[in-house]
Design a protein around this nucleic acid. Structure first.
Length: 610
DNA sequence: CCGCTCCGGCGGCTAAGGCAGAAGCCTTA
């Protein structure tokens, strides 16, 4: 785990421990905020502390959400590898108590009560007192609560998991389409972290505007695939829904274990919120989040004498009951644009709503869009492990409106993917040249996805690489090497004069493999110097680079490529996920090589050739 | 604990739903 990740994880643990101990809840919130701030930083805290020396604390306090105490804990962790405060807190609470809170519906207060008054120290202990009935002796524990706990406990493993973006999107679109068909739906859209384009989601949020909520809620709770109905009121409902495994591609490409489709498939919580259409904008903001972004907006509203909730932005009359219930007229509510404008802000793209400084934007940034992408620069054919011929690949790319496609089959070390020997590669280059006369109207580049070996050498000699129009260099093996070795490895690849794009730089697989943890700032700096682009691999199982790395790469001045790593025609549909990830990192068309004109792209590819 | 504002102290986003226990707490979003 990266230093930032390790620190964030510890701050979160401190927050949860403070919650359970019933300590100052604002202190817990502060640690949660610090955790998220640290996670989103485009630089490494280990490096900052090392470089800044005595001034480290002061530098750290420049980070929003990091004050003197948090800064000291960061310095302490970087220098000693530990946080005494965390150790002290951990010693006060049995290890299993924090796991209790992973059960939906069981929060810190209940966990505290179960532990202190019920002697429960882990999930097994909870199960025991549910089974023998003694749980009923505890305060606020009735038959109904216990029954819910029992049901949630049975699904505890399932509920804690986050679902990959690429699996969640089809579920969300299915729900939206099904409900759109019920009568009286004015507007419907999915929101939440899915709309923000996060790589994984804990639940799916769907927002509906209608004058007749009852039939919509009823239709929702009886959709096919709905298991448990968690709550169902007049304006909101939550269910657990089965994810159809056929929706996603389950077997990983080439390397790594092929995962057998699970017979049941995973489940995901889906939340429905119903609002009147005049509140659409405010409700969409509320339901899109992030929570931290919303908190910032509400604070901003209060400072300006207004109050913001999911029904609108209202004048703040300090009333006891919510303003909309007293017929107070909203300052803004119908569209997101007008609510942001009334708060003195430009419309902020959902992908940036993470409380990472987006409230200081003065105009809406023009982020990359799917329609900007005019080239696929990482694609495989039947020569290695793809499903298409060169001609078919080129035809499909052309159909998408692309001006360029690069044929980049695997190199010789990727034996499992039928990587090309030097002789086969040279013949393949000839085949690509031949295909140019068969498929007109698109530029077909002869390239390779060449393995970056564990020590940083490339899988083909420079003489061979020199014959190619484009080289994507990617790590495929030795993906658990030490960060230092990983950094040196990727630096070596970047410094090779034939490399154009660093493909899926960390090799991580979402929910399956952590991948390399190089010093992103260091390799980004080198990539900027050598004119090498970093890839966002758009496959939803990869999304590699990830969002915060994209941001770090852009800060360093790198160009970014968004590639589908196409193996079969449907892979080009993954482009949207790569674009979302780029947007989350603040990527604009100017910094995305796939969005450049054919001429500009060609000029860039020629920069170190000839 | 943080940020703000002023150097010591104070306030900190908002609402709905569900349960337990009869007004309020807890959880989640």
């Amino acid at each position: 785990m990266s230093v930032n990740g390790a620190i964030a994880e510890r701050f979160e643990r401190i927050a949860r421990l403070l919650d359970v101990l019933g300590a100052d809840r604002f202190k817990a919130i502060a640690h949660d905020r610090a955790a998220r701030a640290v996670q989103g930083l485009p630089f490494d805290l280990g490096a900052l502390v090392a470089e800044a020396g005595e001034g480290a604390k002061k530098r750290l306090m420049e980070i929003e959400g990091v004050g003197p105490k948090i800064a000291e804990k960061i310095v302490e962790f970087v220098r000693t590898g530990a946080m005494r405060e965390l150790d002290d807190l951990t010693a006060q609470v049995p290890a299993g108590v924090l796991h209790l809170m992973s059960i939906p519906g069981l929060g810190p207060k209940t966990a505290g009560t179960l532990w202190k008054e019920g002697g429960v120290t882990d999930l097994a202990g909870l199960k025991r007192i549910i089974d023998d009935g003694t749980i009923l002796n505890l305060p606020r524990m009735g038959a109904k609560s216990v029954e819910k706990l029992r049901a949630s406990l049975a699904l505890a493993d399932e509920a804690g998991k986050r679902l990959a973006l690429g699996l969640a999107v089809p579920v969300a679109e299915g729900v939206v389409e099904a409900l759109r068909g019920t009568g009286g739906v004015d507007r419907i859209e999915y929101a939440g972290s899915l709309r923000r384009g996060r790589e994984t989601v804990a639940d799916i949020d769907v927002l509906v505007a209608t004058r007749t909520p009852d039939p919509v809620v009823r239709a929702f709770t009886t959709l096919p695939g709905v298991g448990q109905v968690l709550v169902a009121g007049p304006t909101r409902a939550s269910v657990r829904m089965r994810v159809d495994p056929r929706l996603g591609r389950w077997s990983a490409e080439g390397e790594g274990g092929d995962e057998a489709p699970e017979t049941d498939g995973p489940t995901i919580q889906v939340d429905l919120k119903v609002v009147p259409v005049e509140s659409w904008g405010a409700a969409l903001m509320y339901f899109t989040g992030s929570k931290d972004h919303n908190v910032r907006l509400r604070e901003r509203a209060l400072k300006r004498g207004m109050t913001l909730n999911e029904y609108g932005l209202f004048p703040d009359d300090k009333g006891e009951t919510p303003p909309q219930q007293r017929g107070v007229r909203a300052v803004a509510a119908a569209t997101e644009e007008e609510v942001y404008a009334a708060l003195g802000l430009p419309w902020i793209p959902p992908e940036l709503r993470e409380d990472r400084g987006e409230l200081s934007l003065t105009q809406t940034p023009r982020l990359i869009e799917v329609a900007d992408i005019k080239a696929e620069l990482h694609a495989h054919t039947i020569a290695s492990d793809g499903a298409m011929t060169i001609e078919e690949l080129a035809t499909r790319a052309k159909e998408r409106g692309f001006h360029t496609v690069a044929v980049t089959d695997h190199s010789k070390s990727s034996v499992q993917a039928n990587g090309l020997s030097v002789d086969r590669l040279l013949a393949h280059v000839e085949a690509v040249h031949a295909a140019r006369s068969k498929v007109k109207g698109i530029r077909i580049l002869a390239g390779s996805e060449v393995d970056i070996l564990a020590d940083g050498r490339l899988d083909y000699d420079d003489k061979v690489l020199a014959k190619l129009d484009l080289v994507v260099a990617s790590p495929h093996t030795a993906l658990s090497q030490e960060p230092k070795a990983a950094t040196a490895r990727l630096l070596a690849a970047i410094e090779n004069p034939h490399v154009d794009i660093l493909g899926h730089p960390t090799g991580r697989l979402i929910n399956r493999r952590a991948g390399l943890e190089p010093d992103i700032a260091a390799i980004a700096k080198a990539a900027a110097t050598h004119g090498v682009a970093f890839e966002i691999n758009a496959n939803w199982m990869r999304l590699d680079l990830r969002d915060v790395h994209v941001r770090a790469a852009l800060v360093a001045g790198c160009s970014i490529a968004i590639n589908c790593d196409t193996h079969d025609p449907s892979d080009l549909d993954n482009l949207r996920f790569g674009v979302l990830t780029g947007r989350r990192g603040g990527l604009t068309p100017a910094s995305c090589v796939n969005a450049w004109t054919a001429a500009k792209l060609q000029k860039w590819l020629g920069r170190r050739r000839n």
